Amino acid sequence: MHASVLKYFVEVARSGSIRKASEEVHVATSALSRQIRKLEDELGTPLFERFSDGLRLTHAGEIVLRHATETLRQFEAMRSDLGEMRGKKTGRVHITCLDSLAVQFLPEFVRKFHRQHPAIDFRIRTASYNNIFRLLTEGDCDIAITFDLGRPHELDLISAVKMPLMAIVAADHPLARQKQVTLQECAQFRLLLQLDNEVMSSMIAWEIGALDRVIRTFVATNNQMLLKPLILSGEGVAFFTCLGLLKELEAGEVKALPIAGLRLNSMQVGIVTPSRRQLTGATQVVVEALSTELQQFSARIEAVHAR
């Protein structure tokens, strides 16, 4: 019961909303609100400030959040240890990752992994590049899969693969016949750009800005899934890694073209864990399996480029 109350509290703190938290933990809003009020009564202090746009932690709430996060982490470690006593890996593993990894890589990984370790389950959350590191350092997740461009010192890179930004076009697009392209060549066509993407901004925003007089941005969006059908229909040029497009690359529906002269062409995607946190047995197994699967996924991408 104690663990359940702490889970409820952590989710409300994370979302800043009773309603949003109730959807995540599958508990009625009225019941969840009562649990939070009961916890506040037991501790004798308000844990949240209540505003019209949501809830914010009080100073006391921040102290309780640190305790709750650490307690739940120890609870998961205990579950994992008890499972190993019975001769099987068990527990819950929290992963945070880039949106593109949730398109094909992680669904394939989860299906394969679950067949070998059915007692391990997952909580997977996509986030922006900067938020991924925050979630990992604050203890909201166990493993991150993201770009390795400058991680905080308290995080360890376990394994990584090369994953540069590419120009993505339909197979019948005029640029598809080339081996590589320049941003100037891409700018002759309509562009399909990502908004609110820190990595793309750091890599090509300045270069794109220099071409401001000639570029034609057809669509700019913070939802990359919206851009995929536009790429496939030949509407323009997008800038992505190949992470979320392997299926289309293998089917020959799109081409991924190296961008000549682009900064950070050696960019990597890697698996990151907290350096000072003891990983549960379940998390360690997942990290090892993810490392292997990421290498294999990268090899499949390289095989497409070698055709």
Rank of each mutant, 00 (worst) to 15 (best):
V5T: 14
K7T: 02
K7C: 00
F9A: 12
R19L: 15
E24M: 08
E24F: 10
S30T: 15
L32S: 01
Q35P: 00
R37I: 15
E40Q: 07
E42F: 06
F51G: 13
S52E: 03
G54D: 00
R56D: 11
G61L: 02
R66H: 14
E70P: 01
R73P: 05
F75R: 05
R79P: 05
S80D: 07
L82I: 12
R86P: 02
K89Y: 09
K89M: 13
H94I: 11
L98Q: 13
L98M: 06
L98C: 13
D99Q: 11
F109Y: 04
V110T: 05
R115T: 01
Q116M: 07
D121H: 10
F122K: 02
S128H: 09
Y129T: 13
I132N: 02
C141P: 05
C141D: 03
T146I: 05
T146P: 07
D148W: 10
L149P: 10
H153Q: 15
L155S: 02
L157D: 11
I158V: 12
I158E: 10
I158C: 04
S159D: 04
K162Y: 12
M163N: 11
M166I: 10
A167V: 03
V169A: 06
A171K: 10
H173I: 10
L175M: 12
T182S: 14
L183W: 01
L183G: 04
Q188F: 07
L191F: 09
L193R: 08
D196V: 11
D196H: 09
E198I: 08
S201Y: 05
I208E: 06
G209N: 12
G209I: 07
R213P: 08
R213W: 05
V214D: 06
R216C: 06
A220T: 01
N222A: 09
M225T: 05
K228D: 06
K228L: 09
I231T: 03
G234T: 06
G234A: 06
A238K: 08
G244P: 09
K247S: 14
L249M: 08
A251W: 04
E253G: 03
E253L: 05
K255Q: 11
I271Y: 02
I271W: 02
V272T: 04
P274I: 03
S275F: 00
T280G: 08
G281N: 11
A282N: 09
V285W: 04
V285T: 07
V286E: 03
E288I: 02
A289L: 02
L290I: 02
S291V: 09
S291E: 02
L294V: 00
I301G: 01
V304R: 03
H305T: 11
R307G: 14
R307L: 00
